[in-house]
Design a protein around this nucleic acid. Structure first.
Lengths: 328, 328
DNA sequence: CTGAAAGCGCTTACAG
DNA sequence: CTGAAAGCGCTTACAG
């Protein structure tokens, strides 16, 4: 900027005025500055600008589990659209489900003075986030609530989705409904299992713990579990799968064994309607999660004191065939 | 930092020494500083730090077509991993295939003084990038080459992939092979069509222009084209589809019409092996694209003068069934 | 309409 | 081992 000022024969302040389109600069002066700017290839340093202005860096951080996962990238996309409307840029980081990595990324983002963060949390203790929130960094949690602190959160109605899946299978005559999943510790899975239990109980069916197979995934895990569930005296006639991975694995076993088993899978996926039978799913809306979280974040950035909000977004049962197979 | 210095009763410089773990600070002094830091919730402002140090902001920008697309998010993931190894943070932006938007994002990134950018270009004139490259911003293009400037690029072997697809269908006895795609203007599609032509020509088969249906997608486009290709006196017995969208659309029509047509699709997709018949594809490796681009970028950031590189990554034909259907 | 001085929160180069 | 001064590239508040 000093070079531009010298080149144009004006003061720093005048250059500043011109590059920021402030009113009250003589036309000729402005022209000289513009010429100097383009001759020198000058470009305002927004880092210095933001530092001096002392407020916003006009950037937000998105901390997801894994940006390569469809749900995370859809969420990020929605956040980016909202950020654009507010003139903000988006930093991304993948925690890889590691609370330590999550905290490192959080720290790096805050040191860069992002105005706020949208977090799909991996850990379950976010008191380190609360400290920064006190100092003015906004944070909204998505998909899972924050741990040990009060903070805005946008969640899917996981329990409701599971209830809908079970109710649907019950309506088609099933009584032996299994649930298969992995990562039992995380919030959405716990909620879904709770929803499963609730729906059965409400229907007056005793929950058979042997039909609940939610455990850390291991080699060959699903295949063995699938065989377990489908064989024996009193086999499952229907399955609710709690992740795409489980859905696909279960379908493979069912097909290989030549069984007819009803299936409702959690999370919609590309070409779920090209499979035979097409897969009935409980769909979440990751873009809506991102959009809602972003609007919460920007609302918080705009208004100093807001009460903490928890928003739960509905899930949707999409019937395509696999969930409408009757019991034998 | 001033507050911390006052609180600890030391100078600014000493605080700086402590928070940056510089050697040569008395233990007791350091302890006092640390205490002040945690009492005040102090956190080093990396924005100011980077400004003063005058070099790197330790951040890079990733400019993709659409972060919600699987290929883009996989690429971004790989870039993020590399960035992490180099202590860099990642800014993302989706151009939505709009050259104007691409340029705006580029400009915003450069104003934030990212050290470099990885760009999946939408436009075909990147002279505005060259200007910044001269001033020290590194840039690597991915998936498509830069337009009107010389720059590093990492590409997939699109032509080779298309040749492999056609050769595979020829080997299974097909002579009437169609190619169906959208977005004819973009580089990967042009390359694939060129590969298609080359393979047929090499096999001594005259190219029938009626079998090349690559056009901007319109309502009902694919379905009508599919019917066109599959009917008439001399129908296509095999199809190469140039995108997931086309693959899925074509499969739907084929299934609805009860045809037996061989198909090789461009780009692998989730559950392509659960469809009946499982889908033979030409797979790219978006993570490898991202990884390679990132290592090129960081190499360029490390070494002042490097010659410009263009790296072409191989594609892979994955046979699963749909591409091995013989002609009637 | 234009400019000189101070300052954002840090680090660098130097002195003690 | 510790500190006072200058400066990174801008903007703010004030004066002319």
């Amino acid at each position: 900027m000093v070079d531009v000022a010298r080149q144009a024969g004006v003061s720093l302040k005048t250059v500043s005025r011109v590059i920021n389109n402030e009113a009250g600069v003589h036309e000729g002066t402005a022209a000289r500055v513009h010429e100097a700017v383009s001759r020198l290839g000058f470009r305002r340093n927004d880092v210095a600008r933001n530092l001096r202005r002392g407020l916003s860096t006009a950037s937000i951080g998105v901390l997801v589990e894994d940006i390569a996962h469809t749900a995370c990238s859809a969420l990020t996309w929605a956040v980016e659209q909202a950020a654009r409307e507010h003139g903000h840029l988006v930093l991304v980081g993948s925690s890889d489900q590691d609370p330590v990595r999550e905290r490192e990324l959080f720290s790096a983002f805050v040191s860069r003075r992002v105005d706020g963060l949208i977090i799909v949390p991996a850990g379950d203790d976010h008191r380190y986030v609360a400290r920064e929130m006190l100092l003015g960094t906004a944070a909204v949690f998505v998909d899972r609530p924050s741990g040990r602190i009060a903070a805005d959160a946008v969640l899917s109605d996981n329990a409701g989705g599971a209830r809908a899946a079970v109710d649907h299978l019950l309506a088609h005559g099933h009584r032996r409904i299994a649930v298969v999943g992995e990562r039992p510790g995380i919030y959405p899975i716990r909620e879904r299992v709770a929803g499963y239990r609730a729906a059965l109980t409400k229907a007056g069916i005793a929950v058979d713990e042997r039909l609940i197979r939610v455990d850390r995934a291991r080699e060959g895990f699903t295949d063995r579990i699938a065989l377990d569930l489908l064989e024996g005296d009193d086999p499952a006639t229907a399955v609710v799968t709690l992740s795409n991975l489980m859905t696909v694995a279960m379908l493979r076993t069912i097909r290989r064994e030549g069984r007819r088993v009803a299936l409702v899978g959690f999370d919609d996926f590309e070409s779920s309607d090209l499979i035979e039978p097409a897969v009935t799913v409980v769909a979440q809306d990751p873009m809506a999660l991102g959009r809602t979280a972003a609007s919460l974040l920007f609302a918080r950035l705009a208004a100093e004191s807001r009460s903490i909000e928890r928003i739960v977004l509905p899930t949707r049962l999409i019937t395509r065939g696999s969930g409408e197979i009757p019991p034998p």
